[in-house]
Write a protein that binds this DNA or RNA. Structure first.
Length: 701
DNA sequence: GAGCACTGC
């Protein structure tokens, strides 16, 4: 693999970005400061070299550690070098929404333009771009959606895939797609012969609309030091190394393996607190329960310390925690206190907490595991990868030299796998397969993935899509069902439910169900207020099951919001009131807001497809029929012992105690979630409608 | 009568 290294220390003049705007002294100071900041970034000295490399190569890999400035600077360098001529756009993808927004804001400020003009961003539910946008930050999933409408991504001259080392499903599918697009555009460019039709088929002969396309420049940016995999995948693409800005972190290992990492974490916290210099501690744990346990243990042992040593403040952070409580980690620590942050791997990449000097890494993570044979997903605690260990220790060196305590011997570290198994190899592929089919790739097993998912996982998804009617007998996308399904940004089974519910005249109800099922748990119950929460939920509960219960919650929220809206017009106070309503009813505010967003987004899609919202009103049976027809793959029958047998595969399951049907135990159920913890549970359960069900399982009945 | 890492369209 050819590669070059770039020294970060030499300074070099950078392009003129402040294009003659008059400003006050204060903002001149700010601009001067920004320019200073930009010039001092490690990447600044490499501007000319990088631009040269991009000119010379169609694909390059940029390896840059945190703090190198690659995400904010490179697009500006390329813009100044003329890569946006003829109105072309530089697109930069991010795995996370927050990153796309914050980076775009920063770059807009650096360029001294209004956000949404020259520099903009686009994420689901939010488009801050315009016709004049030339540097566009977006989530990788969104670019995939864009490709459905414009398969050769004709607006873009350059696409930068950032954080590629994270290897999310979206990143992996995007890499495969971009490779094809690049090939197709190059071929077209060389042919130099415009085609009349507007059909593009990427996996075969390249056709395009009657314009000539310039080649697509591809830049893959990764923070992991090993660029080999990316380079090989892109035919030996050149790798360029850019140094980061990171303080040294001392790595300390234990002499022997720790039998109980929770206990070892608590001991290490106190060891640091009593023996080491001031500085906050970040401890990585696997989940909510473990975090609560460690928090309790720390406070217990704190009582045994002399008064003057009790100056520890603990804060917890994990994703299902309400945002107000998440914000606690950013509150300044009282002087003389040491902050101990107990976090899941949300603190690995998504949230950066200032002030951390010590990291405690027990070396484990809770991770999703998918069994393609049973189609079941479960969460298991497993060892992290070397790359992950590196990422964790790096959290101690953001502001100064730090220390990382790995709660395992060094010999164990070397046994860890190099990098985390890409998500695409451990999740259901139904959505991926549907998207690829819609993009024109018919041969999924032969698709050029960077890491191929297992054959059985692909076959399982093809089978499911076929049963849902998205694929024809010869495995092509069906018209119109498959095509419509691919358009919805939903799980394929939910898309199918929407399409079916039109026939059953209950699209309005199904749209609510699908929106509510597409988000994290709607119900929020703090452990200490469990009973209170349960009685608050009672008023929403429906005897028919959890799905109509969700409909009731959604409608109650809308009704409440409209009532407030009638009284005040201020969006701000409407939001506040709705938050209060959520708190009073033990509803997760963030999840509900998300569901409202999904609901309105899908509604627009439905309108575009001329599917009008029809309601079944009080005809609950009609809704149950539709639910049964949509989720017949998820039907289960009661067994003599009160457990259930899934009709499609004979799997034995239990109704989860959180379901409204937990006690009622009807003869036959439909479920929309399957989860394995101590037992195999189904959640979100409704009564099936037998006559409808027998249509799908008539051989048995 | 249980407990769900983290993202994303």
């Amino acid at each position: 693999m050819p590669s070059i290294s770039i020294s970060p220390l030499k300074e070099q003049k950078i392009g003129n970005l402040n294009q003659g705007s008059k400003a006050s002294n204060k903002s001149l100071d700010r601009k001067h400061w920004i320019l200073q900041q930009r010039r001092s970034l490690p990447i600044a000295s490499a501007e000319r070299k990088l631009v040269d490399e991009v000119r010379k190569n169609d694909t390059i890999i940029i390896v840059g550690e945190t703090g190198s400035g690659k995400t904010t600077q490179l697009p500006q360098y390329l813009f100044n070098a003329g890569f946006c001529r003829d109105g072309k756009v530089i697109g930069i993808t991010q795995p996370r929404r927050v990153a796309a927004i914050t980076v775009a804001k920063r770059v807009a400020e650096e360029c001294d333009v209004q956000l949404g003009q020259k520099v903009g961003y686009a994420i689901r539910f939010e488009d801050a771009t315009s016709g004049s946008t030339r540097i566009k930050y977006m989530t990788d999933g969104l670019l995939l959606r864009e490709a459905l409408l414009d398969p050769i991504l004709s607006r873009y001259s350059v696409i930068i895939v950032d954080e590629a080392h994270e290897r999310t499903v979206h990143t992996d599918v995007l890499l495969g797609l971009l490779k094809k697009v690049q090939g197709a555009r190059l071929k077209q460019h060389k042919l130099d012969k415009p085609y009349a039709n507007n059909v593009v088929k990427l996996d075969n002969e390249c056709h395009s609309s009657n314009t000539k396309f310039s080649p697509l420049k591809l830049i893959i940016m990764s923070a992991s030091l090993d660029a080999k995999g990316f380079s090989e995948y892109f035919g030996g693409a050149k790798a360029v190394y850019v140094q980061g800005r990171q303080y040294p972190v001392d790595i300390l290992y234990t002499y022997n393996p720790e039998p109980d990492y929770v206990d070892a974490t608590v001991i290490t916290i106190f060891q640091i607190h009593l023996d080491d210099n001031p500085g906050d501690i970040l401890a990585f744990l696997t989940g909510q329960e473990e975090i609560e346990l460690v928090d309790m243990l720390v406070h217990e042992r704190l009582k045994q310390l002399p008064e003057h040593s009790r100056n520890i403040l603990t804060v917890r952070i994990y994703s299902s925690l309400p945002s107000e409580q998440q914000m606690n980690v950013f509150r300044p620590t009282p002087s003389n206190f040491r902050k101990v942050i107990l976090a899941t791997n949300i603190a690995e990449t998504s949230v950066t907490i200032p002030g951390v000097k010590y990291v405690i890494d027990p070396g484990v993570v809770k991770s999703r595991y998918y069994n393609p044979v049973t189609g079941m997903e479960s969460l298991i605690i497993m060892p992290i990868s070397k790359a992950q260990a590196l990422q964790r220790s790096g959290r101690a060196g953001r502001e100064g030299p730090g220390k990382c305590f790995r709660l395992y011997p060094e010999s164990e570290f070397w046994k860890l796998i190099d990098s985390t198994v890409p998500e695409i190899k451990r999740c259901s592929l139904s959505n991926v397969v549907l998207q690829l089919k819609a993009l024109g790739f018919d041969d999924i097993i032969g698709f050029d993935f960077m890491d191929k998912p297992s054959r059985s996982a692909i076959k399982q998804s093809l089978q499911e899509l076929y049963l849902l009617g998205a694929l024809t007998d010869d495995c092509k996308l069906s018209d119109p069902v498959g095509i419509q399904m691919a358009r919805f940004p939903l799980d394929p089974i939910y898309s199918k439910a929407l399409i079916l519910s039109r026939e059953f005249r209950c699209l309005e109800e199904m749209l609510i169900v699908v929106a509510m099922l597409s988000v994290e748990s709607i119900f929020y119950s703090p452990r200490e207020k469990f009973e209170e929460a349960r009685s608050a939920w009672k008023k929403f509960s429906s005897p028919d099951g959890d799905h109509l219960t969700l409909v009731t919650v959604f409608r109650a929220a809308i009704e409440y919001r409209e009532k407030i809206r009638a009284a005040t017009n201020k969006e701000n106070s409407i939001d506040k009131s709705l938050s209060r309503w959520c708190r009073d009813n033990f509803i997760n505010n963030r999840s509900l807001k998300h569901a409202l967003d999904v609901h309105s987004q899908i509604k627009v899609y439905l309108e575009q497809m001329d599917m009008s919202l029809s309601s079944c009103g009080d005809d609950v049976l009609q809704f149950r029929r539709c639910l049964t027809a949509s989720f017949f793959l998820n039907a289960a029958e009661k067994q003599p012992d009160g457990s259930y047998r899934v009709k499609a595969n004979g799997q034995n399951v239990q109704i989860h105690p959180s379901s409204v049907l937990f006690r009622a135990k009807p003869e036959c159920i439909i479920f929309t979630e399957l989860i394995q913890t101590n037992q195999i549970y189904v959640r979100s359960v409704s009564q099936a409608w037998m006559p409808e069900l027998s249509k799908y399982y008539d051989a048995e009945s």
